[in-house]
Nucleic acid binder design. Structure first.
Lengths: 381, 381
DNA sequence: GATCGGCGCTGATGCGCATCAACGGTGAGG
DNA sequence: CCTCACCGTTGATGCGCATCAGCGCCGATC
């Protein structure tokens, strides 16, 4: 095991080919301004082939060139243990695009996950510079992180829409607003007049967009919006909330609640969609989408698009108008949306929970997005 | 957006602290031989804090230091689309250990997957040098890859046992031999006298180990080994093969076949384990393990162990005896292994498939591992 | 015949850091 | 008093590469 065998350098190749190191560099760079004679070029390439020379990416990078490495920062573990891999579809798209473009991916796993999230500024910032640019993924979007990144002028792209006062935030996002509007409009078309929104009422962009779509559809139909806080409540509590508000349809913006709600409704003898229509606003867990009406988030495409934007920014040939891309969601017809029926039986309340303290109260803001803050949701993108 | 704001360098810190760049380097390196006065040290650290200086990993690496980046090379896509993520449990362990040690992970996604696998030497070789060391994962183990890596003296660790003529191959592997031996011994204890091995008969180490365990158990019991090629056959064909050989129990070393075989047997009215006991030799898809007897591969631990070995090698403080680690598999009792019953009904053959051409013939080698070559299996580790 | 421009190539430089040899200073020992 | 060891610090060097300015050479032009 000869540890001595150091790797071949350009200087070595140059010596063997009888040229200068600079010439080797030019030959290998290819599309340089400098011209190299065909004979010399072939001589160099021959030596490269014979010696098996391969460029040292580290030196390339230090010398100011690109190294075709893309950093990937996730606020949560890339490979979670507990549930099915949330990032997986995103990474499928990212890896495919990386392979297509010949890029390597640097996962910033060194930043420890503390209280559920990684910290970009404290731990990851230094390592960022290793890559040509960086992809950001995850539910958190510390405004300081964004401002810092923008301030540095370091190329980055967020997966999921983000906004910052510090400047333009490049992103690849799903069009939650349009998709939500579409599914709520469908409920309107089906004849519903009391359509609620149950979900995260916090400032996260992905939920703001859903609410905006909801408000647009409801307003267009001349209906009254009913916003309910759906964070950290179970299916029964949610159902009570809906019944209290005498809703016939609800758009649910959380990604476990729709199933819990469906279960609770059926358990109590309510017919879905007969007595209650349920649409879910995007669902990361494809396994459960079979039945529920709603829409699908184009995660794989988001990953691909994000990486394409990033390489465009790095190359400097992507106009700023294209730094933000919004991808359409595909609608899922499902089986939980249907025309409302006049209730023949009085909806049964759960006695124990009826009017229980701590049950979230309905919110009815005058302006979209102007609702009470709520804990962060479980849906990062 | 001031793209001009270049990042802070040691030289910058040195200037502000009124010391030399070398001093800054020494202060930050910490455990150097060189001593720095406490006052100077604090002055430097203050400036570092104020400026938010962070070391440039590229320069660190080029200058001969470590950069705390671990390369990860997989022969197949890291994030596969078609089936449940095979690498996932491995990566869970790797990521956890990387986080614990403050390491970043560089995924070599730039090497295109051609005809089902990535090529290490052609595409990935150059990029390898970017990292302090490298983890190799996947079903293929090109002997030239191994020889090349060993020859370079580049630190690497394989996940899964690998051997090479070129030298010691560091790995973290599952103890397939012991686990297989244990489950086959259990079949022996249950009273079986005709126990077959159905699986990959190729040279892949993971299958060689399984066969070795099988042979050990069978030989100890004074039984005759029956090796059957289980690659690329369906459940019915496999079942015919077993019936032809009048086996009462079989150890199956492929990871979809056991389920197909079980289905086929039950479909044909055979009782399992009454008429036929089936044990599977490790199963990557945890979703299906509920029923089948066999053993579980400690994938997460393999990932963790591999990374620990690698950092040990990089640090130079891991004795060579510990460069290869074999982890025990946990046995799964399951419901498909039981005592044999004297067959009251003649096993039913499928007429159409009986003796059909192309049906793999049984193999009965005199020496373990000395069997006909077979296509690569689906089990990488 | 002197000038010019373009072609083909090279020397020098620096990226940011780790590392080494060495230097001045200080106190202890002879 | 001189020597010596040791401490704290520094200048110099090089990692492998990209890049820039510029060199010598050639034929073409005036």
């Amino acid at each position: 095991m000869r540890r001595s065998s150091r790797r071949v350098t350009q200087a070595e190749v140059a010596r063997l080919a009888g040229v200068s190191q600079a010439t080797v560099s030019h030959v290998l760079s290819g599309s340089s301004e400098v011209r190299i004679g065909e004979e010399t070029r072939q001589r160099v390439l021959d030596v490269v082939r014979r010696t098996g020379y391969t460029a040292n990416p580290v030196a390339q990078r230090l010398a100011g060139g690109r190294n075709r490495i893309i950093g990937v920062f996730t606020y949560e573990p890339v490979f979670p243990r507990d549930r099915s891999d949330f990032y997986h579809p995103l990474f499928v798209g990212i890896e495919r695009e990386a392979e297509a473009q010949g890029l390597d991916l640097l996962l910033f796993t060194s930043a420890p996950v503390r209280s559920g999230r990684r910290r970009l500024l404290d731990d990851g910032a230094s390592r960022l510079g290793m890559a040509d640019g960086c992809l950001l993924l995850g539910q958190h979007d510390d405004k300081r992180d964004l401002a810092e990144l923008i301030g540095r002028g370091f190329p980055f792209v967020f997966v999921g829409r983000r906004e910052s006062d510090a400047g333009l935030v490049p992103y690849a996002a799903a069009d939650y607003a349009a998709a939500t509007q579409a599914v709520v409009e469908r409920l309107v078309d089906l004849g519903h007049e009391r359509i609620g929104y149950l979900g995260d009422l916090g400032p996260n962009e992905s939920h703001k967009d859903r609410r905006a779509g909801y408000h647009a559809a409801v307003a267009a139909a001349g209906l009254r919006p009913v916003l309910l806080d759906g964070t950290s409540i179970d299916g029964d509590t949610a159902l009570d909330l809906l019944l209290d508000n005498r809703l016939t349809a609800v758009a649910v913006g959380d990604f476990v609640l729709p199933h819990a709600l469906l279960d609770a409704a059926r358990r109590r003898g309510l017919s879905v969609p007969g007595d209650l229509s349920i649409v879910q606003l995007g669902d990361p867990s494809a396994a459960h989408t079979a039945e529920l009406s709603g829409f699908r988030i184009p995660r794989e495409e988001m990953g691909t698009a994000a990486l394409q934007i990033l390489t465009g920014i790095i190359a400097g040939d992507l106009p700023q108008e294209q730094w933000q891309q919004t991808l359409p969601c595909s609608l899922i017809t499902g089986e939980t949306a249907g025309p409302p029926t006049t209730p023949t039986t009085t909806p049964r309340r759960t006695p124990a929970l009826s009017g229980a303290a701590g049950s979230p109260a309905p919110v009815d803001p005058t302006r979209p997005g102007d609702t009470a803050a709520a804990p962060t949701s479980e849906d990062p993108a």
